[in-house]
């Protein structure tokens, strides 16, 4: 809950600081997904912290010393909002003045992300993909046994109970998906792009999962297909680079993708943003599915334990009554 508020607050002041794209990402990631993952992890690991045994003064001292040294270091920094600051002197003017002619995309952030620094972005997508694989290898479970019917019934009852939430969200989900697509393909002109769209898309499906249960969601969105898509997105991105190499230009140089450099840039950015969107959405989804799967599996194990304990208790009581 608090992480959600923290994320939304960060998003608000990113807007104030003129970083609309960043605000968009922070709003969808910070307010949407990170809180959920935290909650899922906390339900699994337990919500109580052990009482502290050591005193925190040493830590406080280290923190204060480091903080004051950092603040001393800031005294030489350029003032907040100073247009003459060194950061604004090197590549930024080129991005701002020439990107419209060279790339032809009004949103400078998108043109820097997709074209000037495309190689960097490829690396970032690869990191996301790797993190997704890491979570999969840590948390994925072998195929689970079929549930007992009564359990399924109780779960359905639970979903029946939240009728208002369910119906409202059901109506919202298609619009969230549509909005994600809009963000994906309108990223050239306004704030948006593959990263944000992927997260929003994943959030819509996560909402569906929370309402109808993991098993229903897994039937609709096959986890194997999602894992495949995560790789497909990254491959699509890399392939765009290879195609431009085959056409005689540098890796990820889109000028050669069409007759006219600017339309080539358009095609390139569109394709790599699509790749980014697919990878981000499917990695986020498979992470969430695995977290939720773990949680359910653990809840089931606990329920079984309780059941067996109860049975043992009953047996013991029966034995006692028999001996009596």
């Amino acid at each position: 809950m608090l992480t959600g508020i923290y994320g939304l607050l960060s998003a608000c002041f990113f807007v104030v600081l003129d970083a609309v794209d960043v605000a968009f990402t922070e709003a969808s990631v910070g307010a949407g997904i990170s809180g959920l993952l935290m909650l899922a992890a906390i339900t699994i690991t337990g919500r109580k912290e052990a009482p502290k045994r050591h005193k925190p003064f040493l830590a406080l001292f280290v923190v204060l010393v480091t903080g004051s040294m950092l603040i001393y270091g800031t005294l030489d920094m350029p003032y907040f909002g100073d247009p003459e600051a060194p950061v604004h002197q090197h590549v930024a003017p080129r991005y701002i003045h020439d990107s419209m002619e060279e790339v032809g995309v009004p949103n400078i952030v998108t043109s820097v992300l997709g074209s000037y620094r495309a190689f960097d972005t490829l690396g970032e997508v690869a990191v996301i993909f790797t993190a997704g694989i890491g979570v999969l290898s840590l948390l994925s479970l072998p195929r689970r046994r079929k549930k007992i019917k009564s359990e399924e019934a109780t779960e359905e009852q639970m979903h029946e109970r939240h009728m208002v939430v369910r119906i409202v969200s059901k109506a919202l989900i298609p619009f969230i998906l549509l909005f994600a697509l809009y963000v994906q393909f309108h990223g050239d002109f306004g704030p948006g792009g593959g990263f944000q769209a992927g997260v929003i898309f994943a959030a819509a499906i996560i909402l569906y999962t929370m309402l109808f249960g993991l098993d229903t969601a897994k039937k609709v969105f096959n986890p194997a297909l999602i894992q495949l898509l995560a790789a497909v997105g990254l491959l699509l991105y890399a392939c765009v680079g290879v195609v431009s190499m085959l056409n005689g230009a540098n890796f990820l140089d889109y000028n050669v993708l069409a007759d006219d450099p600017v339309s080539g840039q358009h095609i390139g950015i569109l394709l790599i943003e699509l790749g980014v969107g697919i990878t981000v959405a499917s990695v986020m989804l498979s992470i969430f599915f695995n977290f939720d799967g773990r949680r359910q599996a653990q809840a089931e194990i606990q329920a079984e334990k309780q059941q067996s304990e109860q049975e043992q208790k009953l047996k013991g009581e029966q034995d006692v009554s028999r001996t009596l």
Binding site: D21, V22, T25, E26, V29, G30, I33, S34, L37, V109, L113, D120, T121, E124, V127, I128, A131, G132, G134, V135, L138, G193, F195, G198, V199, V280, V283, M284, I287, F291
Partner: peptide, 13 residues
């Protein structure tokens, strides 16, 4: 922008 999404992926890890 990219660091935020990478950050949530690594936090999940």
């Amino acid at each position: 922008l990219t660091a935020i999404v990478v950050g949530i992926a690594t936090t999940a890890l």
